[in-house]
Amino acid sequence: MKVTIAYIEEPPFGWTESNQPTGADLDLAEVILRAIGVTHIEHHLTTFSELLPGVEAGRWDMNVPLFVTPERASRVAFSSPVWAIGDGFLVRAGNPKALNSYALLAERHDARLGIIAGQVQHQSARMSGVREDQIVIFEQQSDAIAALRSGTIDAYASTAVGNRVVAGRIGGSVLEAVEHDIVENGKQPLPAGAFSFNKNAGDLLKAVNEQLRLYLGSPDHRTRMSKFGITRREIDPVLVV
């Protein structure tokens, strides 16, 4: 049995290292797919904007996890959630414009925000008052980070976990990660992410979900994810009690 999974360059979830795909989401997919009897796993590197169209058209079998939204769920079939992660900014060291939320960035008319095309951070920013002329859209994370380092943008919006990893790799003297403090009714809501499939891939989706229910939250799962900076905070909210 062969399954092709598409991924994008977005550490710690997925990236290419020494010509080999790696990352938290790909590691999880490997464990789950092997457990359901998949003997050959093929990885397909693509862009974020192509993830949904690609799996919809059957160019590959599944996508690495992305945030679940009603609009996306109308196009693809999502697995059970595998993590829940809040947003954050990547900014230049020292955070020269003191940006720590979408609302604060919206108040700074001289602030520019970088976002990857099609990601949920675009809607989150707009709902918080960020104007469209403050937003710069990129196709690849590497392009957004290059623009941030050059001063073309003042912040790059992505997951808080991903930003921590990128800042750590590049170095705190260059970039730093700023996590958003979002509190709603005394709780901190964290959007959930899940693998996605063609709506006709019912058997594969069912098998994946059954194995996810058995595996998520296990000691092996937690140990594997911790290597990529995915902790109890991101795992526990999606566990089925």
Rank of each mutant, 00 (worst) to 15 (best):
A111I: 06
T231K: 06
L212G: 15
M1K: 09
M62L: 09
Q20L: 02
T16W: 00
N209S: 12
A147L: 10
S218Y: 07
E42A: 10
L105K: 01
L205Q: 13
A29T: 12
L205N: 09
V64T: 14
A84H: 04
V136Y: 01
Y156Q: 14
I8C: 02
L33F: 04
R233A: 09
P12N: 12
L105S: 09
D110K: 13
A155H: 03
D110T: 15
I116P: 03
Q141F: 04
G88P: 01
L90Q: 00
F228P: 06
A24P: 08
D203V: 06
H221W: 05
K206W: 02
A144I: 00
P237S: 08
R108Q: 04
I170A: 08
L205H: 06
E42W: 01
A103G: 11
R233Q: 10
L45Y: 08
V238W: 07
T47R: 13
Q20I: 04
S74C: 01
E50L: 01
S101Q: 02
A167Q: 05
P53M: 03
G58S: 05
D87V: 00
R224I: 03
L28M: 15
R213Y: 06
V31A: 14
G186S: 05
E9V: 02
L28Q: 15
D110L: 09
I137V: 15
H43V: 03
V31Q: 05
A73K: 05
P53Y: 02
K2E: 12
G37W: 00
V136G: 02
A98W: 00
V174A: 10
S18E: 13
L66G: 10
G193C: 11
L216S: 06
V174I: 10
V130S: 14
P81K: 06
H122K: 14
P191W: 10
S18P: 00
S226N: 09
Q134Y: 14
W83C: 08
E139V: 01
H180S: 01
G171K: 12
S158I: 07
E17R: 15
E17K: 15
Q119R: 11
G172V: 08
L104Q: 02
G162C: 06
I170Q: 08
A147M: 04
P12C: 14
F13I: 06
I135K: 09
P12L: 08
I145P: 07
V31R: 13
G202Q: 13
A84W: 11
P81Q: 13
R131Q: 11
T231M: 10
I145Q: 06
Y156T: 00
R164W: 00
I85R: 09
A167S: 11
N163R: 03
I32R: 07
E107C: 10
A73H: 05
A201H: 15
G171S: 12
M1E: 07
G88T: 01
G129T: 00
K227N: 08
P237R: 11
L45A: 14
G151W: 08
A57D: 10
G86A: 05
E234R: 08
D25K: 10
E184V: 05
P219K: 12
Y7M: 04
A194H: 10
K206Q: 11
V183H: 03
P237D: 12
Y215W: 14
A106V: 07
A57Y: 00
A106H: 05
S173D: 13
Q123V: 04
A192M: 11
G217W: 15
N198M: 07
E56K: 15
E71A: 13
E9Y: 02
E10W: 03
L216E: 06
P21E: 12
R169V: 12
L45H: 12
P11Y: 05
N200A: 07
A103E: 15
